[in-house]
Design a protein around this nucleic acid. Sequence first.
DNA 1: GGGCGCCAAACTGCATGCAATTCAGGCGCT
DNA 2: AGCGCCTGAATTGCATGCAGTTTGGCGCCC
Lengths: 252, 252
Amino acid sequence: MAPRSAGKNAESSDKVGVICRALRRAIIEQALEPGAKLPEDSLGERFGVSRTIARHALGQLAAEGLVELRRNRIAVVATPSWQEARDAFDIRIELERLVVRQLAGKLTKAQVATLNAHVDAEDGARDGTDAVSIRLATEFHILLAQMTNSPILVRYVSEVAYRCCLTLSLYSRPHSTECAINEHRAIIAALVKGDEAKVMSLMHSHLDSVANRALVAPTPQRGRDLLDILAPYAEEGESDRVVKMPKVVRVR
Amino acid sequence: MAPRSAGKNAESSDKVGVICRALRRAIIEQALEPGAKLPEDSLGERFGVSRTIARHALGQLAAEGLVELRRNRIAVVATPSWQEARDAFDIRIELERLVVRQLAGKLTKAQVATLNAHVDAEDGARDGTDAVSIRLATEFHILLAQMTNSPILVRYVSEVAYRCCLTLSLYSRPHSTECAINEHRAIIAALVKGDEAKVMSLMHSHLDSVANRALVAPTPQRGRDLLDILAPYAEEGESDRVVKMPKVVRVR
DNA sequence: GGGCGCCAAACTGCATGCAATTCAGGCGCT
DNA sequence: AGCGCCTGAATTGCATGCAGTTTGGCGCCC
């Protein structure tokens, strides 16, 4: 078996886990945009399994809030409302404050090295695609959570961080991840120094600024219902301006 | 339909949702103790569905951490370690502080009435079984979370509260829910008064005391591995003292 | 008598098949 | 042309069947 991180949680089974991880990654890298359709058949075919398994994977992802499941309808990548996004960030802030509080001054040398290596990787990926930067930034936070050795905390932080990613792809502008990297470095430094209060406030403001960079206005760019998307076009009734429904990305 | 919180999340489908709710309730009322076996067949038969559905339900519950799924083995009700229990309570405190912070001074009259009614119900159930008291106490917290209108927060608070219930059935002594009721009343009062700081500290100490009442010692009564259970018997090698393995509760 | 190994029963892992529902596009009507 | 109905294709909901794994109990051997 490959040295998968496996974990001992639900999606460990095997095939289901593989599909979950793949989809999760595709979603947070925005290869699958919110609203993208995820038919069981295509998924199953793509991963070489039956619908049963694909279905199960979709169920798991739905439980994490990454996928929306409507009865008798094709599953789609979740499209959080602006309010839900805000809520997610609020929760995330509390959870991650808990993480760094537990971690302050308790990191081993190896852990610090791992963290630094990760931030270096983030740095290196700066001229790659946005998608990768976002994923790496998110994974930094998950990495931190893992160091608490609290499976529950890891799970919640991961989930909520993924959700925030989803949000980012909906409501944020072209993006600027640069400052985030410096903030990550600052957090590591404060953790090493063991200044609990400092690191908590750093994490708080870090996440707060990420949220604010993302959730600038309650009027999304591509967000929510297509009513919003079409609003700007509502005045100019040019018929050839009508966009052909982009036939959202199929998974196969 | 009962005024269930239903929500728009995963287990809405129907049958799967029914099974999830039933099992969840059975678990938190300790009708199913940690470690109890949950064979797909029996579940399916009991609820009049096929294994496919039962399986799916188990998957959902596993994602919530109430059920443990091991490959090729019968699913069992989760048995959180003492450390996991501690972690769960830590997370719960943060989340619920968030809840009451959002709620302070913002409750409608109707909501206050609902809360009071619930606490009255708790009061009325004091001479019922412990199981019911525990469930009601937990539901009070979930009720609060629901009033935030944040589905994500509701989900997380519910999950972690259920987990804590599970813990209680493992590590706590015969129990005393009495004081909890008064603390609930105090929280409502502070919420109405709108004293944010006060209500947050009340909630904090409330949960803290619940946790401490439950997680007294790192040496559980019936908890964890049976190694711990058998430790006291290790010295007296009386053969007729050997307890017949209690053949954990089957679901049918 | 106690421990070890084997075998049948129990159970899970997964695919497939069928019924029910939704979806898309074409046809007729206005 | 525009609008709505209607029908077939696509898709989900669910049960069942088969293969592989685990379980636990019986008999055998020590």
